[in-house]
Design a protein around this nucleic acid. Structure first.
Lengths: 250, 250
DNA sequence: CTAGGTTTTGCGTATGCCGCACTGGTGTTG
DNA sequence: CAACACCAGTGCGGCATACGCAAAACCTAG
């Protein structure tokens, strides 16, 4: 591993929180200011950081450009987006597309619903294995070895009273998820937010994606979301078909 | 400048085009494969690149996440303010910065001109879609779906003889606005006040902001404002550049 | 003007990055 | 099925380069 590059990357993360002065950056890295300055100059030159009007360092616009580019390269997203959008508009809820990358599930698309309350999810960030419905929907449909690897990365941190904090409990729920064909998040990360998710099949019949519908419990409790499962399932099947799935919609 | 970091950054750019093998990366940088490998490992560890199923290197999801974050925290106002101020001082007129938030355009900044007659606008309040030049400039440059949603919220209330009171009429003006590149308000809200506005482009090339110059008709009629369009356009382009726009000012 | 804070510069030093040589794995060809 | 070619990945010694130091330049406030 390259120490220098690792430090430069840490700077990007540090600055992403809020803008920072040279001294703050140097202190954070535990290096001399001249060292921090050289790294910042290099990053600034590449547009990864920029200097604010006050001289402090903030995230650069090249990051936005690369982020957009990377998004465009996720091809499943292009295929699924119209479906997510339609689903979101029809029900007024927020919809997500999750993708299995390595042994974690990443949010690769999101369409805000009406009301658009800030949800913890953000495109590009990983979904929490033990709480997010998308993650459960995908994990439930992996082969044994893959599922174990995914579970190995789960934290089982407790966020709310309904959070599943043991591996056994989650494995049990995944079995249920697999058999009934959909996953739920009953306020397991944020108490007032719940969610249902459905697996998406690709041309090989494998599940590498899932779509989810998220809503405030006050707006649409789980029972309400469950009532529309058939519609959600149809949407998931439409995405599956677009991905080359040849299975038989029922 | 740090050579190592510069190389790492070049890798990100190289890989952003399409996925690349280790050897390709090493050749591109003109370094040994072991060197390229170390840099790639560091970048991969940070999520800046990832390995595709074929083992080749592609853009990482952390780039998407940072890109989204950077987009969210674009404090356009901080970047645009000096330009608004300078414009206001040079011509003595009031300048505004409008921002598209959801389905409406909000005034997010305002610099009073000399004379400083009370104008209806106030920072934080929405601009009237069918009369305000900022709103027109922004709306004109949205995609079809977004534009429709914005228009759905317009009231088309008549304030003066020049107010456009039908959707069709406004759509027609928006087409003109888009083609000529600037928007006008010919006393459509208050008969003695007129205004021109220019779109501002962000790093993605999208229009989420516009700046406007507002004046009493008695001080500067529309023909007078139009005469200074080139200067106003330059100001708008300066703001665009500050927002990360890479387009070619003409 | 001084004082206390910052950022920025130049430079000698040693740290950590570099290329070399090598291994192991995979696919191709005669 | 050797023999070959190509590729990813490893360990290590030499030296380029990134590091910290010290001091200068800069800024803002008192």
């Amino acid at each position: 591993m390259s120490q220098t590059v690792a430090r430069a990357i840490e700077i990007v993360g540090f600055v992403s929180d809020r803008s920072r002065s040279l001294t703050e950056v140097a202190d954070r890295l535990g290096v001399h200011k001249s060292t921090a300055l050289r790294l910042l100059r290099t990053l600034e030159d590449a547009g990864f950081v920029r200097r604010g009007v006050d001289g402090r360092y903030a995230m650069g616009f090249q990051l936005i450009a690369y982020g957009q580019l990377a998004l465009d390269q996720v091809e499943a997203r292009a295929l699924a987006h119209p479906v997510l959008q339609e689903l979101s508009e029809r029900h007024g809820h927020t919809t997500h597309l999750g993708e299995l990358v390595g042994d974690r599930v990443i949010y690769v698309d999101k369409v805000d619903g009406r009301g658009s309350v800030a949800m913890g999810s953000r495109i590009g960030l990983p979904a929490r294995t033990h709480t997010a419905a998308v993650a459960k929907a995908i994990t439930a449909h992996q082969d044994e070895a893959t599922r174990q690897r995914i579970l190995d990365r789960a934290t089982f941190e407790r966020y709310t009273p309904t959070t599943r904090t043991s591996r056994e409990s989650l494995v049990e729920e995944l079995a249920l998820t697999r058999s009934r064909g959909w996953a739920e998040d009953d306020g397991e990360h944020e108490g007032h937010v719940n969610c249902v998710a459905l697996p998406v099949y690709d041309a090989r019949g494998k599940v590498t994606h899932a779509i989810s519908v998220t809503a405030l419990a006050a707006v649409a409790p789980l029972t309400e979301l469950r009532a529309h499962l058939d519609e959600f399932r149809t949407a998931a099947e439409r995405v599956s078909t677009r991905l080359g799935w040849k299975g038989t919609p029922r």
